[in-house]
Amino acid sequence: MRKLQGWKDIPTGTAIVKAGSSVEYLTGGWRDARPEHDKGKCTNCLLCWVYCPEGAITVKDDQVTGINYDYCKGCGICATECPPKVKAITMVEEPKLM
């Protein structure tokens, strides 16, 4: 459980003073299918990266290095947009919760 602030501690007027603090809120648990990235097939066109609603495709030195499952919601846009001749991303069902 995160600790909730009292009224004296919150910044004046509902201001959120920590820019980009949403990264503390993980959305990976929403996923029912995970994209799996095959580095061998990938041509690093970065289309998956530019179409990801979460910015969950990780890129380093022009290369797709993987997927950040802390945030990936499993929408599958990346797998769809990966060019037909490449198909470096496959969607794999997450294990069902009891």
């Binding site: 009224w7 004296k8 007027g13 509902t14 201001a15 959120i16």
Partner: peptide, 29 residues
């Protein structure tokens, strides 16, 4: 208090507050 035009210190103003925080914001006001 939190000038929006201080671009090097970006703030989010007017966010929504859910039931966990709305009361505290109103109490502060």
């Amino acid at each position: 208090a939190h000038p929006l035009l201080e671009v090097n210190n970006p703030v989010t103003l007017g966010a929504c507050a859910l039931p966990d925080y709305y009361t505290e914001h109103k109490k502060q006001h």
